[in-house]
Amino acid sequence: MNSAFIISLLQGLLGTVILSILTFIFGGILGFLIALARISPVAVISRGTGVYIEILQGMPLLVLMGLCFYGPGIFGYDSLSPLQAATFALTLYSSAYLGEIWRGCLQSVAKPQWEAAECLGIGRWHRMRHVILPQALRIATPPTVGFMVQIIKNTSIASLVVGYAELSYNAKIINNSTFQPFLYFGIAALMYFAVCYPLSVQSRVLERKLNVANR
């Protein structure tokens, strides 16, 4: 085992973390808009976002990465850097899943809450901001933390089409020169585990807490 290889793996891990954070920020913003659009009373908007979600959930992330990587150049924009293209694809992908998760959370806030707010003459924005969101947020936290694990795992394929250097990519490069797959892929797997497992545990703990409050 060589310390240069370990440093290279750690650098890859940094790439993974950067891409995950960017994805979570942008995917979260877009996903929130998607969730709102999905419960919009205007049928065109809610159905349109429904189709958007269906399409994104029906194709592999790798295909989406290819489209995001080669697409902008073709439509006359500057081509994207690997990090930009990977963030773009993962943002679209996560927005579809987060949108569906959060739509469920918004809709699980009891109907009378929506109606009561309306009866009190609270405007649409204020109803969302001060009545619905605070309650939905509590419900949404455990599945959202759980989905962060999915995002981190999904960044592992950002090197395949787009060529963004993250943990899996660096591990593959090291294996190509050392031929010790069990050792280096094992270490890479442990690194992923070290990042993902605490989030998984946290998600479960939050869920249990929420259930206690509901009992």
Binding site: P181, A189, Y192, C196
Partner: peptide, 22 residues
């Protein structure tokens, strides 16, 4: 279950397939 669910499929495939080959 925990180990598989908290690591990416790509790394698992590399580990198993390249590992078996090695």
């Amino acid at each position: 279950v925990e180990f598989i669910r908290n690591t990416p499929l790509l790394i698992q495939s590399y580990f198993l397939i390249f590992g078996i080959a090695s």
